[in-house]
Amino acid sequence: MLEIKNLHARIAEDGTEILRGVNLTVKAGEVAAIMGPNGSGKSTLSYVLAGREDYEVTEGDILFNGESILEMDPAERAAAGIFLAFQYPMEIPGVATMEFLKVAMNAQRKVRGEDELKIPELMKRVRAAADELQMDMSMLKRPLNVGFSGGEKKRAEILQMKLLEPKLCVLDETDSGLDIDALKVVADGVNALRSPDRAVLVITHYQRLLEHIVPDTVHVLYRGRVATSGSKELALELERDGYAGLVGEAA
């Protein structure tokens, strides 16, 4: 489903190279975990997948279902089925959350040739998804993410993901800032989306999330490259030994 080939990317503004030859393949139905030390390029990778303009791809390619997405803008990628749950979701004052959800859902439906959702049907879906995530509907009356607590923002990201039903879910440290109960709720939300035609990329620092969302593969990003890959046991090793050993091997 996702093939990242020798991907090099730099910060557009100053040319600093952050991704230095990432190779990664994620199959349909697979849950891949990405771990790695702070600053190794995990969030950058997620942004480059989503098409953020601040980064420039200088080499390599990203294939989604066999086709390069490099020429697509973020909206086109999202419509194609790529969803990024942000590490730091942005607060957008003045944009009503419900209005945003309506516009986003219908924009994607339109691209897929589906009918526009009317308000009652939309409300029904939003309410059902919010219930599952144990979110209070009254939060959704506020402007998008404005004044949401850290954990509320993360839940709101998963709410959007449930509603938009993407093919590739990229979760950037969705576990950070969540309390233990919330972690379980959010993990259940992600697990509910697991299906043979959907892939999940989980970026995390902690084994704890991976106990709930059990990965098929684990990859360690180090200095802009995948330093090592393995099965879910790799995450346990990292938890026990830290990155020092691996980093030594990769260097």
């Binding site: 999202a78 969803f83 957008i92 924009a107 938009l164």
Partner: peptide, 11 residues
Amino acid sequence: HLFYLMARGID
């Protein structure tokens, strides 16, 4: 902000 909205499929 523009990126966030577009990342949700809004042109």
